[in-house]
Design a protein around this nucleic acid. Structure first.
Lengths: 121, 121
DNA sequence: GATATACTTCGTCATATGGCGAAATATAAA
DNA sequence: TTTATATTTCGCCATATGACGAAGTATATC
């Protein structure tokens, strides 16, 4: 029950759903997710940590950068199925389609520049 | 997005998960769910209304009694899939197994008596 | 080593949520 | 029509959650 509840609680927030769907096309750096959600770095970090605790995303550190991606085979069945359910039922959401467009631009921006901008604001 | 979020928020509470799983074997009267959860009638009613708003359960009124059941074919795809996911991943949960046992006793109690008891307390 | 920087953790605040009991509603029974 | 009763709605309170900025941590660069 606790595992399932961890998952459903993690999914019970719009910004976390957006973050998950953003990862559907492959891993992203935290600063890219920050940019897409237009939220404070600390807030996004917390969201990602909640998704990670629920087993919905995996994390990888590379130098100063932290990458997150959706769970794959290694994750729990419940988590993998939840992600699949999301992708089926959220792919055509207006918000998600819009986010996907925004992301296509964001991934073109140099990450150093992206982070510098976020530090300033 | 709002539909999906309504579902995930509805699922983000342990007592609502228990209520949903209780309905896995067929419809139940509100007073039976109240008894199983050991919560105030008003609280349970609110939980059921949230599940109903999310499209996860259907309601049927028969005289003074109100019956709730899981969504069937008529429900949204997202809701039906969510219920199926729950049933797959929660059926063996300790809490749910225990609730199922309790329910077997509850459905034997005369409903009039059940409700009278709940009014007193 | 010292500095810069990408991210996380912590403390705080405003709002959301879950719990209850009292009052309201709807239906059955007298 | 009055009374009883099953459920819901409302108002209140305590706790949980999401947001932020400041401080902390870890890694790269000077």
């Amino acid at each position: 029950m606790r595992d399932v509840l961890n998952i459903t609680k993690a999914l019970a927030d719009g910004n976390r759903l957006r973050a998950l769907m953003a990862l559907a096309d492959g891993e992203l750096c935290v600063c890219q997710i920050i940019e897409m959600l237009s939220l404070a770095p600390s807030t996004v970090s917390k969201h990602l940590s909640i998704l990670h605790q629920a087993g919905l995303v995996e994390a990888r550190k590379e130098g100063r950068w932290m990458y997150y991606r959706l769970v794959n085979r290694t994750g729990s069945k419940a988590a993998r199925e939840a992600v699949a359910w999301l992708r089926r039922n959220l792919a055509e959401s207006r918000q998600v389609v819009e986010d996907t467009k925004t992301l296509r631009k964001i991934v073109c921006i140099d990450r150093e520049e992206l982070c510098r901008k976020q530090n300033r604001s």
